[in-house]
């Protein structure tokens, strides 16, 4: 038993899954933190990113890694359309946070249903997959496929650069300030709606990139997004809603817990584990496991 627990193989899997969860949660957190929008279509943007990558690869042979900026652009474009057609009006017309949260949930549910079924209508509902970078590398007994290694490296680079951007640059600090307190941010002269727009499309772009990474290692289908949405919500609630660093730590945590519990018990318990953990944490510490208290 202990051999399993200290095996580097398992730690590597957990690290890959955790970094993916962190990346997915980061996008969701940016949108919620700056705008209080509950994006339950987040997983469907991942799906769109995965499909875009799949088609670029199978039709033009473009490497998924080269296609990353393009896929990010497609997801961001969807974000731009949604922002101007729906959410800008919601944010400017309503001043009560509860109302914005409730409405955004319903609106994003509509968006989610539309995205899933449009893709299913265009490309059928059957799952697809492609093979890319699946050579196995061995480093002192640890077996890694190239695509998993690439997922880990890209996610790590993105997570680090976003955290550095938010904590070091003037622009990023303004976004952090906006996440902490919107009214105060406005008072000190931060252009709130502009930063909200930037965070909104960044969140979408990050989801697109995450989708490209997922498509390298897993089967894709029009309805693959929902489990990711749920995982992302579990992560950002664990880390404290709107708490960027907390979300990243919680993402790694969920990756490790999931991999190790499945190995120690059985795959049947995966869903129960995620929801049990989630409900338990919410009941015991509604402000999040790692979060600072933040009530409104």
């Amino acid at each position: 038993m202990t051999e399993i627990l200290i095996s580097p193989q398992l730690a590597f899997s957990a690290l890959v899954l955790g970094s993916l969860y962190s990346l997915i949660a980061l996008g969701l957190n940016l949108v919620y933190g700056t705008m209080r929008l509950l994006n339950i279509a987040h997983g469907d943007l991942i799906m769109v990113g995965a499909y875009a990558t799949f088609w670029f690869f199978t039709l033009t042979g473009m490497s998924p890694l080269v296609g990353l900026p393009l896929v990010a652009g497609i997801a961001a474009a969807i974000g731009i359309i949604l922002y101007f057609s729906i959410f800008r009006r919601q944010l400017s017309g309503i001043d009560r946070v509860e109302r914005i949260e409730a409405n955004s949930l319903l609106l994003f549910f509509g968006v989610s249903v539309i995205l899933q079924n449009t893709v299913a209508m265009m490309f059928s509902g059957s799952p697809r997959a492609y093979q890319f970078l699946d050579t196995v590398y061995e480093v002192s007994g640890l077996m890694m496929t190239g695509n998993r290694l690439a997922t880990l490296v890209i996610a790590a680079i993105l997570l680090t650069s976003v955290v550095l951007f938010l904590s070091r640059s003037q622009y990023g600090l303004s976004i952090s300030a906006l996440i902490q307190n919107q009214t105060a941010a406005r008072v000190v002269g931060i252009n709130v709606s502009r930063l909200q727009f930037v965070s909104f499309i960044s969140g979408f772009a990050l989801a697109g990139i995450a989708g490209a990474l997922v498509s390298m290692t897993e089967q894709i289908s029009p309805f693959m997004g929902f489990p990711f949405t749920i995982a992302a919500f579990v992560v950002i609630i664990l880390g404290g809603l709107g708490n960027i660093k907390g979300g990243i730590i919680a993402g790694m945590l969920l990756g490790f817990v999931e991999i190790y519990v499945v190995v120690l018990t059985s795959a049947n318990f995966r869903s129960m584990l995620i929801y049990g953990l989630f409900v338990g944490i919410l009941l015991l510490r509604p402000e999040g496991l790692l979060g600072k208290t933040r009530r409104h």
Binding site: E101, L105, P286
Partner: peptide, 14 residues
């Protein structure tokens, strides 16, 4: 708010 929404969903799934 969001905690309640997600909690009801999570409980139903649990």
């Amino acid at each position: 708010g969001p905690y309640f929404v997600i909690l009801t969903f999570g409980l139903a799934e649990l």
